[in-house]
């Protein structure tokens, strides 16, 4: 579904991603882990189309598309969804109307009939149970005055309604207490399906206790330095990131020779 080859990205003139290779198939859940500043969030945002990030090298193929050529809105309509680490507050824009517009933009793009207000509301209320979010959230401005946990649940609600093909969750666990984390994880797990791929970007192993990944990758210094199964995440929890960084540095030295 997604193939990233030698992706290099500059942010404000500084090279942050230094050649990422990653292949994600439908039905798989990949966790991208790594220390702060390793480029995890940059990767998530570049896939969603953040324009201030400059791609200097590489190619990203999503389904049959050259993903990097599509503007963010087209990626969204093609089924790419980014759950933000810091969902943006947008005063004056109604939460549920935005969600309806988002869903209908996708449906229209896919040749489906747009949902009317009644059918849409039925769908949303159904999905709301999944993330235990109250109806009052629907009619407030997008994320305005939401607590950290409410914002994250709102992101998962959007994801549940939009049913993306590729969901990228950027540090969805950050700032959540254990109860909120369980709710969010439950929401994500119920969306796992053989047609859908997920990329979980996370600093901590904690989330992976609840959402069990098929593959774990460690990002360090702008490169994927180690890939493995779920056990890699557990090892990281036990040993920290230090040893990986040393191993990577050693490998780089060997390569240089």
């Amino acid at each position: 579904m997604l193939e990233i080859r030698n992706l290099q990205v500059k942010v404000e003139g500084k090279l942050i991603l230094k050649g990422i290779d990653l292949k994600v198939n439908a039905g798989e859940v990949h966790a991208i882990m790594g220390p702060n500043g390793s480029g995890k969030s940059t990767l998530a945002h570049v896939l969603a189309g953040r324009e201030s990030y400059e791609v200097t090298e590489g190619k990203v193929t999503y389904l049959s598309h050259n993903l990097l050529e599509l503007p963010p809105e087209e990626r969204a309509r093609e089924g790419v969804f980014l759950a933000f680490q810091y969902p943006v507050e947008i005063p004056g824009v109604n939460n549920v109307y935005l969600l309806k517009a988002a869903l209908n933009a996708m449906r229209k793009h896919g040749g489906l009939e747009e949902l009317d207000a009644m059918d849409f509301l039925k769908l949303v209320k159904d999905k709301m149970k999944l993330v235990e979010i109250g109806e009052e959230f629907l009619y407030r401005a997008v994320n305005e005055g939401f607590s950290g946990g409410e914002k994250k649940r709102n992101e998962i609600l959007q994801m549940a309604v939009l049913e993306p093909k590729l969901a990228i969750l950027d540090e969805t666990d950050s700032g959540l207490d254990i109860d909120a984390l369980k709710i969010v994880a439950h929401g994500v797990n119920s969306l796992r399906s053989p047609e859908r791929a997920m990329i979980l970007v996370t600093h901590y192993q904690r989330l992976l206790n609840y959402i069990v990944p098929d593959h774990v990758h460690v990002l360090s210094g702008g490169r994927i330095v180690k890939s493995g199964g779920r056990e890699l995440a557990l090892e990281l929890e036990a040993r920290g990131y230090g040893w990986i960084e040393q191993e990577a540095a050693g490998a780089a030295r060997a390569e240089a020779k």
Partner: peptide, 16 residues
């Protein structure tokens, strides 16, 4: 206009 708000809306499928 706030670029973060713009990106958020576009990432939800809205034309720029």
């Amino acid at each position: 206009l706030d670029p973060d708000m713009l990106f958020y809306l576009r990432s939800r499928g809205m034309e720029e």
